[in-house]
């Protein structure tokens, strides 16, 4: 096995059984995967496709029916591998009676982190996830988004080399989603490996290096995002301030070469970009209506 392979599965299969041991559902069928250090890897698929099962098998929460899952070269059932792993489950399963500080302190102790380092790390993480103001409140008083943030903090308490994120953006608002994406990219910068599973494809597309698409427990596609999504027989230009004459000329050139012009239009920003710019403007000028320039406003001015 190459030294930079972080996760390796070999014909990994999982069949759920009923009380009497009879096979009920084949959740994962002979999955072969290799995830390398520094990658952001996305597991995609509709509900029930085997994404979460794969993740639980990698964490040792489930035992494979056949095949093997190796994490950092150790069997997934070996607890020692967890020293280098951070995990954020689908829902944030934390102890509601603990405060944010107590939560991080508890998980820090589980990693056997010495008191001083633990304290520094807790302060840093609480600050990073923006919960300084609520650090002494019990989690039962937290909103879903806040709980998610503290969940992310607990997943990073040990400064892990591998982070597994299940349904990454569940419960987060668009700002949280953007911050999360930024965080993941920062982790990649720091050489960490991130494995995430989601069915929100846009999120995955933005940040993942490679993806695997699962359906009914089977691997249907695996590869680099840009090569998977690239449309080879189409070409796209983006030009700022193009005059009508220039547009006409370009259309004429395309026609002369007998190519088909599929679309020539002004690009549309994403709703996420619009939302974020409104929120930023609102924060900069509280109490005023947002001043974000849209295409409609530009036309009316003209």
């Amino acid at each position: 096995m190459a030294s930079d392979v972080v996760i390796e599965t070999r014909a990994l299969s999982k069949t759920y059984r009923d009380f009497w041991g009879r096979a009920k559902v084949r959740a994962l069928k002979s999955l072969d995967l290799e995830i390398r250090q520094g990658e952001i890897f996305g597991l995609l698929g509709p509900n029930g496709s085997g994404k979460t099962t794969t993740m639980k098998l990698l964490l040792g929460l489930l035992f494979p029916t056949s095949g093997q899952a190796l994490v950092f070269g150790r069997d997934a059932s070996d607890v020692r591998k967890n020293e280098r792993i951070g995990y954020l489950p689908e829902e944030t399963y934390l102890y509601k009676f603990l405060t944010a500080e107590e939560t991080l302190d508890f998980y820090g102790r589980l990693f056997d982190i010495p008191p001083q380092t633990r304290k520094e790390r807790i302060d840093q993480l609480i600050s990073e996830v923006g919960l300084d103001w609520a650090r002494r409140r019990q989690l039962k008083e937290y909103s879903k988004g806040m709980t998610r943030r503290i969940g992310i903090a607990q997943a990073r308490i040990n400064d892990p080399d591998l982070i597994l994120l299940d349904e990454l953006n569940s419960g987060l608002d668009p700002i949280g989603v953007r911050e999360m994406k930024d965080m993941i990219l920062a982790l990649k910068e720091a050489g960490k490996t991130v494995v995430m599973c989601s069915h929100l494809l846009a999120d995955v597309q933005d940040i993942c290096d490679r993806i695997a698409i699962l359906h009914q427990g089977e691997l249907k596609e695996l590869g680099r995002v840009e090569s998977l999504l690239r449309v080879a027989d189409e070409t796209q230009f983006r030009v700022r301030g193009m005059s009508q004459a220039c547009q006409d000329e370009v259309q004429a050139v395309i026609a002369r070469h007998e190519h088909e012009l599929v679309e020539m239009t002004n690009p549309v920003s994403t709703l996420e970009d619009l939302f974020l710019s409104i929120v930023r403007d609102s924060e900069a000028r509280p109490g005023r209506r947002a001043r974000v320039e849209t295409a409609e406003q530009s036309e009316s001015v003209n």
Partner: peptide, 8 residues
């Protein structure tokens, strides 16, 4: 889940 996925 958040406990057993630590080195415990």
């Amino acid at each position: 889940y958040t406990v057993v996925t630590k080195p415990v």
